[in-house]
Write a protein that binds this DNA or RNA. Structure first.
Lengths: 95, 95
DNA sequence: TTATTATGGTTTATATTATAAACTTATTTA
DNA sequence: TAAATAAGTTTATAATATAAACCATAATAA
């Protein structure tokens, strides 16, 4: 027991982990909200959201608020499972 | 509260974190022991140990066991503090 | 009206990183 | 003596994180 299970590289990233951490406790969140909370640049955030989306850890919907673009993200079941098992695995490293 | 504090990039690495995790609970450990426990390649381990050493998170002593090289590592006070605060910061992300 | 600045992003370039492959030196073993 | 093993180190490469540059539209100022 307590071997070092591999840490999902998609989650073992400061910004993506922060995003998942935010999304896991809300229904959905807007791009600008995530940007503020994570204090990231828009470019970086955009790239990392795409990666999470491609892995189907989150789903992204693009629409408009009035006439401005609105990107809304929410975590998927797959994302929740991945996050939870990442956290479980991580515990072996830090306790 | 619960902002995302930055994660020390030196520790936010699977192998280096595993090494630190091992070293924190022992007096010292040999290269081969770390290699087995972390299931890493010698090359990768060698590189990561060097980085931890340069950051003074561990200290490395090279000697001989009989006639074979023996590399022994131990965590430093600086390393312990860094590890502990990494863990504290990380908690904001995963709880 | 025409600039100028702000908003909400995306794309691209770059520097850093993690990692394994290849190598070195010495020592056993067949 | 040749081949395999041990204990690493050095180097090459592919992946990654990140910010800079860019784009389109909207609001504001001159």
């Amino acid at each position: 027991m307590s071997a070092f299970k591999p840490l999902d590289p998609l989650l073992h990233s400061q910004l993506r982990l922060a995003v998942m951490s935010l999304l896991i406790s809300v229904e959905s969140a807007e791009f600008t909200f995530l940007k503020e909370k994570t204090e990231s640049t828009a470019g970086n955030l955009s790239v990392q959201l795409d990666k999470l989306d491609k892995a189907e850890y989150i789903s992204i919907s693009k629409s408009f608020k009035g006439r401005r673009p609105l990107t809304t993200c929410s975590i998927t079941q797959k994302g929740i499972k991945a996050f939870e098992s990442y956290v479980e695995n991580l515990k072996n490293y830090i306790t």
